[in-house]
Simulated scan of single mutants.
Amino acid sequence: MGKTVAIPNSDMFTEIEGAKALISARGVYMQTGLYRRDDKLFVAYGRGFARLLLNNNTTVSNVRWEAIEGVSIAEHYNGPSIAEKPSLKVA
């Protein structure tokens, strides 16, 4: 698994190893790590995290996510999540 991010008084976000995201804020593009909390995806932004939402939006009004690499995602009405690997059925 990944490592937990060290934020004062917080150990609630886990970095997804090998995954990264491209975000843009006011015309400036930045590469950042991708994190998870339960089934929700987040990007590091400033001194905290922004949750990824549907249609490339985030919980920060002027920040959009442009691309995600290193992990398969599934789109849902409440934002992307890590795509579940299909289970093998044994006959």
Rank of each mutant, 00 (worst) to 15 (best):
H76F: 05
G70R: 05
V28K: 07
K40S: 15
N57F: 09
G33I: 07
R37E: 09
T59W: 04
L54H: 13
G70K: 12
T58S: 01
I68Y: 03
S72T: 11
S10K: 14
V60K: 11
P80F: 08
S87M: 10
L22P: 00
N55H: 15
K89H: 06
I82W: 08
K89V: 14
E75F: 02
S24H: 00
E15C: 09
L54K: 11
T14Y: 09
L34N: 06
F13G: 00
M12A: 09
L88S: 09
Y77R: 14
K89Q: 12
V90R: 08
A19E: 08
G27Q: 03
D39A: 12
G70F: 06
A91P: 13
K40C: 07
G2Y: 07
Q31V: 12
Y35D: 04
T59E: 02
V63R: 15
R51V: 05
N78W: 11
E15I: 03
G2M: 00
N55W: 07
K85Q: 11
L52R: 06
F42D: 03
K20S: 15
E15T: 06
T32Y: 03
F49R: 12
P8D: 05
L53C: 12
E84A: 07
E84G: 03
T59I: 13
H76G: 04
V43F: 06
G33Y: 09
S61T: 13
E84M: 00
A83D: 07
A25G: 00
G27R: 05
R47P: 05
V60C: 08
P8F: 06
N9Y: 03
N9D: 15
G2A: 14
S72K: 14
D11A: 10
G46Q: 12
G79R: 05
G79T: 09
G48E: 10
I68S: 08
L53F: 08
W65F: 15
M12T: 12
M30Y: 13
E69Q: 14
N57I: 02
K85A: 15
E75N: 14
T4P: 00
N56R: 02
S24I: 13
R37T: 01
A74V: 07
L88P: 03
A83S: 06
V90C: 08
I73H: 04
A21P: 01
R37D: 10
V60R: 11
R37Y: 12
E75T: 01
I82M: 04
A19W: 03
E84Y: 00
R64F: 09
M1H: 11
D39M: 05
L53R: 05
P8C: 02
T58I: 13
L88C: 13
F49W: 04
A91R: 13
N78Q: 10
R36W: 07
V43W: 05
N9T: 02
V43N: 07
Y35T: 04
E69T: 14
G18F: 12
M12P: 00
E66A: 06
V90W: 04
P86R: 14
S61I: 08
W65P: 03
